[in-house]
Simulated scan of single mutants.
Amino acid sequence: MPFVTTSDGVDIFYKDWGPKDAQPIVFHHGWPLSADDWDAQMLFFLAKGYRVIAHDRRGHGRSAQVWDGHTMDHYAADASAVVQHLDLRNAVHIGHSTGGGEVARYVAKFGEPQGRVAKAVLVSAVPPLMVKTAANPGGLPIEVFDGFRKALADNRAQFFVDVPTGPFYGYNRPGAKADQGVIWNWWRQGMMGSAKAHYDGIKAFSETDQTEDLKAIGVRTLVLHGEDDQIVPIDDSARLSIKLLRNARLKTFPGYGHGMLTVNADVLNAELLAFVAG
């Protein structure tokens, strides 16, 4: 399997499909998943003639289960290691949830300074800041994330059943029809990774202030968010991010939840293609 070794010795697994001379699209997955969460998008864009790349974040999926470095800075640096290893240029970077935070920091700190990024997409993304602070009074209380940590430490396997069965895909909403395969696939991806990486990752995605990252991004950026997102509330994320980005457009989806890239892939893929090709 293809791996790249980072400067601090971490083996990062990646997929690289499609013609090497085609425009690259780089996908960044959410917590606690893997590159596999992008299957619907990678197959779609591959069929359209693009080169598609996705990696497993450190401690997730097939990447090395190191005990440290589970921070947004390391996530972005690891993504940069993959990009530089493959020498990707004119790339579109698309991130979901925590992966959206990874995209924001990567583009601001590495991608744009290196001249490697064409566009960016933040989908159901965590920036600018999830946790409630004096400067971010609309955020979620720290007790919410402490609850995540406790549930993970007490019984990670059950927690990773409860999240996709309930709020992640909106299957807890009246009239929603749960897809058992989608739930099992979420659980499978989560349990492939390291409990330590997942535990530390909660702090990374909830307490990292990315205000300055968003302000630094100059490339065209598309912000997509479901209006019924129970994991990353739209008012605390996308609606704030769009005010900080210099060259961005916000598209919201009534009734869609956090996992809309999977359960509403037909709609989201069409939106992504229009932006990438436009």
Score class of each variant (00 low, 15 high):
2 P>K: 00
9 G>N: 03
11 D>Q: 06
13 F>N: 02
13 F>M: 05
13 F>W: 02
13 F>A: 11
15 K>T: 08
15 K>C: 10
26 V>M: 12
28 H>D: 09
29 H>D: 09
29 H>F: 05
33 L>R: 00
37 D>N: 09
42 M>N: 03
45 F>C: 09
45 F>S: 13
46 L>N: 02
46 L>R: 02
48 K>F: 09
49 G>F: 00
51 R>T: 07
55 H>I: 11
57 R>D: 11
58 R>Y: 14
60 H>C: 07
62 R>A: 10
62 R>F: 06
63 S>P: 03
65 Q>N: 14
66 V>W: 08
67 W>C: 10
67 W>D: 10
67 W>I: 11
69 G>Q: 09
69 G>N: 11
70 H>I: 15
77 A>K: 05
81 A>W: 10
81 A>D: 08
82 V>W: 08
83 V>S: 04
84 Q>E: 10
85 H>P: 08
85 H>E: 10
86 L>K: 13
87 D>N: 13
89 R>D: 10
90 N>E: 09
92 V>N: 01
93 H>A: 11
100 G>Y: 11
103 V>A: 11
106 Y>R: 00
107 V>W: 01
109 K>H: 15
112 E>V: 15
114 Q>R: 15
114 Q>V: 15
121 V>T: 02
121 V>H: 03
124 S>M: 12
129 L>R: 05
131 V>S: 08
132 K>F: 06
132 K>P: 09
135 A>L: 15
136 N>K: 05
138 G>P: 02
139 G>P: 00
141 P>I: 00
143 E>D: 02
143 E>C: 06
145 F>A: 07
147 G>P: 03
148 F>D: 01
148 F>W: 14
149 R>Y: 05
151 A>N: 01
152 L>C: 12
153 A>C: 03
153 A>M: 03
156 R>I: 13
157 A>G: 00
159 F>K: 01
159 F>H: 07
161 V>K: 00
164 P>R: 04
164 P>H: 05
165 T>F: 02
165 T>W: 04
165 T>Y: 01
168 F>V: 11
169 Y>S: 14
169 Y>G: 10
171 Y>V: 04
172 N>M: 06
186 W>V: 14
187 W>G: 03
188 R>I: 01
188 R>H: 09
191 M>F: 15
192 M>V: 04
192 M>P: 07
193 G>P: 02
196 K>N: 07
197 A>W: 00
197 A>C: 07
199 Y>L: 14
201 G>Y: 03
208 T>C: 13
210 Q>F: 13
211 T>E: 12
212 E>V: 07
216 A>D: 08
216 A>F: 10
217 I>P: 11
220 R>D: 12
222 L>C: 09
225 H>C: 09
226 G>M: 04
226 G>S: 03
227 E>T: 07
227 E>A: 06
228 D>T: 02
230 Q>K: 15
230 Q>C: 14
232 V>L: 15
239 R>S: 05
239 R>K: 14
243 K>Q: 13
245 L>N: 11
247 N>T: 02
248 A>C: 13
249 R>Q: 11
250 L>D: 07
251 K>A: 12
252 T>D: 14
254 P>G: 06
256 Y>K: 12
261 L>C: 15
268 L>P: 01
269 N>I: 07
269 N>M: 05
269 N>S: 05
270 A>W: 10
271 E>S: 13
272 L>I: 11
273 L>S: 14
274 A>L: 15
274 A>Y: 06
278 G>D: 08
